[in-house]
Design a protein around this nucleic acid. Structure first.
Lengths: 165, 165
DNA sequence: GTCATTATATTCGGTCCCGAACGATCGCCG
DNA sequence: CGGCGATCGTTCGGGACCGAATATAATGAC
């Protein structure tokens, strides 16, 4: 993620460059570390768990959402997966071509479209997710249980705050 | 980000769906909240600060890196920005067309390429970043100073752990 | 019942994104 | 000094990504 600079060097360069600008450095570090950690984690999980599955990160997230919630309307899947509905249309097209999920018409509203896992998709998630979770555990290996809970809790506050906004 | 489900509903659905699988839920919540928060923050900053600048998120990150570090070799910029060198080539092409940055040959190694901000790009960052930082502060508004520091610290541990891996 | 408003998924253009393949260049070792 | 393995940025193909425009369908007003 940070390439040939250490985090310490990065912090020093930033402090030097921005020292005169009267900024909220605590907020900056919290936010930029969320983004950096997220990228690093995504890269790690793509390279370890997803590598040989043919799934992209977003494809996996979409599968996960449909797995957890069961057959769902596309706009809910897009919202849960954190992507636009336009993007979801394309991702579903890809996942449909792999026979991992299927579309069906909404029973009463012909504008809407339902998405569900196929048996293949269901099996894939059942096999994949324990591996995925093992790598998640690896990612937070250096944190104590208390730190993990506080981390999740603080992020949840951020999320709820942004949802209200 | 989470659409029409509350986080609480999401947590319940996941616990119900995965209860039998013997997973590390603390790790799962920490990791998935990092990803969710990161997406939500990115969306928020794109919609507020970046909206009228013509910059994409990645374009802004690349500009930021070159701003902080000064004129740099492209492979360092790619690493700092967390994108592949192939992607960076395209992003630089876009930013060059806006006259926000420019390429120049490395003084001694003709394989390498240097990237620097133009005067326009420099001015843009100087004007943009205080706004950006104000929104960063808004994002973590619900956290205490102590929580912000612990959040940044925990994420830094995660990052350093993944860098070593 | 009709028409305007609203809500839905899809399409489209431009950008980002990765990894693999490529061509140019460099550094080293003989 | 010659060649060859390593390193660099670019290109390419396939996919993800957004927001605006579009087409279709449901809803509400009257």
């Amino acid at each position: 993620m940070t390439g040939h600079h250490t985090m310490r060097q990065t912090e020093e360069a930033i402090a030097e460059r921005l020292g005169a600008l009267n900024l909220d450095f605590e907020a900056m570090w919290a936010v930029s570390n969320i983004y950096r950690a997220s990228s690093a984690i995504r890269n790690h999980l793509e390279r370890t768990v997803l590598r040989d599955t043919g799934l992209t990160w977003t494809g996996f997230v979409v599968m996960w959402v449909v797995w957890i919630w069961g057959e769902s309307e596309t706009r809910h899947v897009a919202a849960e997966a954190g992507i636009s509905k336009g993007t979801l249309t394309g991702v579903i097209k890809t996942l449909e071509s792999y026979r991992h999920l299927r579309r069906s018409p909404h029973p009463t509203d012909r504008r809407r479209v339902m998405v569900a896992l196929t048996a293949t998709g269901e099996r894939l998630m059942r096999e994949l997710f324990p591996d995925f979770n093992r790598q998640e555990a690896f990612v937070v290996k250096e944190l104590t249980g208390e730190q993990r809970r506080e981390l999740a809790g603080s992020l949840r506050l951020v999320l709820e705050h942004l949802e209200r906004a």
